[in-house]
Nucleic acid binder design. Structure first.
Lengths: 189, 189
DNA sequence: CCGTTTGCCTATAGGGCATAGGTAGATGCA
DNA sequence: TGCATCTACCTATGCCCTATAGGCAAACGG
């Protein structure tokens, strides 16, 4: 009986890969067990249950995405930062659809508060410093940007832009341009 | 043995109600059978399988939402129409979270093409007539609006706006204002 | 009023989740 | 080095959801 060398970390990573390949909805303890050539019951020694596994994948994805965004916006400001932020976000969703879906997995408030989700909010606010918005406008802007980024990524992933043959990339650039204009026009200064 | 009087329509409607109460993910043939005090196997006489049921609920929700939007924008133009459209959309998502989720259920291309989804696209384009955008800007705008509407509804439903005590309603109004400005500034005339 | 259709049934099988309890490989300590 | 312990993975089991096959009785149509 050779041991498979399971651990919460390996299961989480393998779960993320499985999500990208087959969709987050296909991430099951059974499927993961098959991937490690192990019986499903064996996984319960490393993760509490199915929900725990999904939560770990979600936290992992949030962290990874936050890292990429942080990397992208480093040393940039204004529209340059906006574009970098937005592209990092969209690129992640395209490269890792399953992980992106996982990042939207509903977390309980405590877990969410301790997650990289707060870094996302902080980075968005940092990004907006370039637009000099006073409260409550800044919060409005955070929500608007979040909506556009998530909405676009979500619709694009669902194939919502496949009907028309105008490239999704062009609409994305156009949208970012709109956002930049809108934010600049609302600048306090 | 009293008959329950099942039909595809009644199952679809009950499924939509179940979705609103417990979430679209909780819509199962078993749960629906319980609701009609009937055995799960009995449902297969009316719907092909679980996927078929969910597809029916999705189509129903798309239709219902399109009706509401059509009603809201009737006789309006410009920012007035934009606001009415957007509010109808968001209000539906808030009043019927399960049906809204269902409306995002992935349909195969054929089904999608025959669904009320095309009415949504048409109405969005009609809305944009007030802004006089030439192609490909119009397509870009359709995508941007879809992203914002869906993104906002999605984040709000997920409780993403609960952390800050600034009302989601205010951010929504602010966002629509931004969109209106952005679209007007890109008008061809 | 009888035959056919149709609506819901039981029985059954497969797959995912989850727990209880067993066994063998790895580890630690004398 | 050898034994005790611990830990990783196992089997067995039960529940729930999906799905199919085949049966019986209520409803309907002539």
């Amino acid at each position: 009986m050779v041991r498979a060398g399971l651990s919460p970390e390996r299961l989480t990573l393998a779960g993320a890969e499985l999500a990208d390949e087959a969709g987050f909805g296909q991430v099951t303890l059974s499927a993961l067990a098959r991937r490690f050539d192990v019986k499903p019951a064996s996984l319960y020694a490393h993760v509490k249950n199915s929900h725990d596994l999904k939560t770990r994948i979600a936290l992992f994805a949030l962290e990874e995405l936050a890292d990429r965004v942080a990397d992208a916006v480093a040393g940039r400001a204004g529209k340059d930062a906006l574009t970098a932020f937005a592209n990092a976000y969209r690129d992640y969703a395209r490269a890792h659809p399953g992980r992106y879906e996982a990042a939207r997995y509903r977390l309980d408030p405590q877990t969410a508060a301790a997650s990289a989700g707060v870094r996302h909010a902080q980075m968005t606010r940092a990004l907006l410093r370039g637009y000099d918005l006073a409260e409550p406008d800044q919060t409005h802007a955070v929500r608007m940007l979040g909506s556009v980024f998530h909405g676009y990524a979500s619709l694009e992933a669902a194939g919502g832009f496949d009907h028309t043959d105008i490239a999704a990339q062009q609409s994305w650039a156009w949208t970012l341009d709109c956002l930049d204009t809108a934010l600049r026009s609302r600048s306090a200064s």
